[in-house]
């Protein structure tokens, strides 16, 4: 099935309109670079004065405040804040486990909307946006760009993608980190969560920002009560009987796993957010992820 750009735009147009005013400030001080909206750790020479610093050998003499030197007979360097752009990479998990529930593909649709929405928010903030769709072995990667067409490419790529395969996310994340200052992973974390955590924590330690958006279907939290033999779409060997006897144990095990994942990611400095299909609108989810304070949430949950 061929999906045209117009179809993709029609699909995501309401979402793009809804997130138009959202800003997505960086949670960390970004490195220097092209002028942008995020506070840079580089003290530049912009007109926005911050402080004076005594002159040290090697400083550029053009940054000495000569008027102050004339008044105080001491040489000071005039410092000002610098702002830079923050290249953002969004990694969207397109593995087979995202195609759930089977009839509606609710997890995939919600993940795609979150990915496109966050990309639009970043793009509207003037940041370059890239996109990685990791499902099969050959992941689709769109390099971070600031042009408007990047959103079109992202929407078109997402619309053409059908969740399938069981490729791990960690390699895609590693590749994405090479070109991004901010990384967002939208996934159900049912693949290589531990490897993903390792890569993410390493990236956080390097001073970058990583967000993990955990997509969960309500049927996974509260599965149907009828006896059914369920199979893992990514691991063919996993076939289990979900009966009244095993249901309680499943709920408890899955809940414990979610708690552990949230705890580990948070401990590693990774922003972690849980989104449940059907609980919130995509717009609110994006606000909660991009601007927690603006959405009335003090921290990512």
């Amino acid at each position: 099935m061929t999906v045209g750009l117009a179809d993709a735009q029609d699909e995501y147009a309401p979402l793009l309109d809804a997130v138009r005013g959202i800003r997505w400030p960086s949670r960390v001080v970004v490195r220097g670079g092209m002028p942008g909206a995020h506070t840079s750790r580089v003290r530049g020479i912009s007109a926005e004065f911050t402080e004076y610093r005594p002159y040290r050998q090697g400083d550029d003499l053009r940054r000495v405040d000569w008027k102050l030197f004339g008044r105080s007979d001491r040489a000071y360097i005039r410092l000002s804040n610098d702002r830079a752009i923050l290249p953002t990479m969004i990694v969207l998990d397109a593995s087979a486990s995202m195609a759930f529930p089977t009839g509606t593909n609710g997890k995939w649709k919600l993940a795609a909307q979150i990915g496109v929405g966050l990309a639009a928010v970043a793009r509207n903030s003037g940041d370059p946006v890239g996109f990685v769709i990791a499902g099969r072995e050959d992941a689709l990667m769109i390099a971070p760009r600031m042009r408007l067409s990047v959103l079109h490419e992202i929407m078109r790529a997402v619309s053409l993608t059908r969740p399938d395969g069981s490729a791990p996310l960690a390699p895609s994340v590693s590749i994405a980190t090479q070109t991004a200052g901010r990384l967002v992973v939208v996934s159900d974390l049912l693949g290589d969560a531990d490897d993903l955590l390792t890569v993410s924590s390493r990236w956080v330690a390097a001073g970058h920002e990583v967000l993990a958006v955990h997509v969960i279907a309500p049927e996974e939290i509260d599965p149907p009560r009828e006896s059914v033999t369920v199979a893992d779409p990514e691991v063919a060997t996993v076939r289990r009987a979900l009966t009244s006897e095993t249901r309680d144990a499943y709920i408890q095990a899955y809940g414990s796993w979610r708690d552990r994942i949230a705890h580990d990611f948070s401990d590693a400095g990774v922003g972690y957010a849980t989104v449940i299909v059907g609980d919130e609108t995509p717009e609110h989810l994006i606000r909660r992820v991009a601007a927690p304070r603006a959405a009335g949430v003090s921290a990512l949950q």
């Binding site: 049912l190 599965p223 369920v230 199979a231 779409p233 289990r240 144990a249 499943y250 095990a253």
Partner: peptide, 14 residues
């Protein structure tokens, strides 16, 4: 055998 179905979190079932 019960009716077959898909559950991505099937690994958590005993």
């Amino acid at each position: 055998q019960p009716r077959a179905g898909i559950l991505p979190t099937a690994r958590f079932i005993p």
